[in-house]
Amino acid sequence: PELPWAIKSEEKAKYDSIFDSLNPVSGLLSGEKVKPVLLNSKLPVDILGRVWELSDIDHDGMLDRDEFAVAMFLVYCALEKEPVPMSLPPALVPPSKR
């Protein structure tokens, strides 16, 4: 059976509104646009670097809506002292990227 995405729809809606507030270009946000938002979490830069690596699934230097939701989810987990994993758990991979 299809593994449900770890990000629930109400969380996704919250992340989507942040995504849209950052003015995505053709549905993508550049690293420069995302960086201030993630730095706002006051997390150490090496943690944010790992969050980026895990969420920029296609490694294009940009985050689309789903990748951005993964990044935000990982940041919130890190803020609750959940260590950021070394690799993306399957349940976190957006259905669009499986």
Binding site: G31, V45, R50, E53
Partner: peptide
């Protein structure tokens, strides 16, 4: 993927 990642696509590295 490598945890350190490449600075070309990662704005934090």
């Amino acid at each position: 993927q490598f945890p350190t990642g490449s600075s070309s696509t990662n704005p934090f590295l």
